[in-house]
Amino acid sequence: MDDKQIIDLFWSRSENALNETRQKYNPYLKTIAMNILGNILDCEECLSDTYLAAWNQIPPDRPTSLSAYLGRIVRCISIDYYRKSRAQKRYSGLTMLLSELEECMSEIPDMTVASSDNEIGEALNCWLRSLDTEKRVLFVRRYWHGQPLNTLAKEFGISYSKLASMMLRLRNNLHDYLEKEGISI
């Protein structure tokens, strides 16, 4: 079933919408959640919450890209689970990822007003669009999908160390770009 038909099912409040969504997107969403949480039990709960959130938000939402829309929900919910699990000292795959992202943002002492999320989001989109396709895809796979470096290296046919240094250069590049644009937290 295509995405438009699934969204129509949501809009007509047919419970079949959830079955079709699960059938089409469960592996994709599960991968994202697992990349962040690394824990199958949390992951399953996270997915249930994702479907419930989609059911509650469509309508009024009518997403243009259902995969990106659901991915966004599962990411947000996974971060919440991560925070809870961190409080309970449970392992999470997100820890390393967040430490990597720390490097991208700088605190500029003389900035009195922090940039808004929208401003940072816009700058990030501009920066991503300035990259060549493979680098852009690698960045999104790593920091949006939360895909581990060793999996990415295998999939893209490059060595782990080469990929790690490539990601480091990308983060530095993003840091410089945001700084140049006057973006700070």
Binding site: P63, T64, S65, S67, A68, Y69, G71, R72, R75, C76, I79, L94, L97, L98, L101, E102, C104, M105, D117, I120, G121, L124, N125, L128, R129, T133, R136, V137, V140, Y143, W144, I185
Partner: peptide, 15 residues
């Protein structure tokens, strides 16, 4: 930063 990345454009995510 991780939260903000959630909001990158859908076409980039799909790509």
């Amino acid at each position: 930063m991780y939260s903000i990345i959630s909001n990158i454009d859908s076409d980039i995510v799909e790509e």
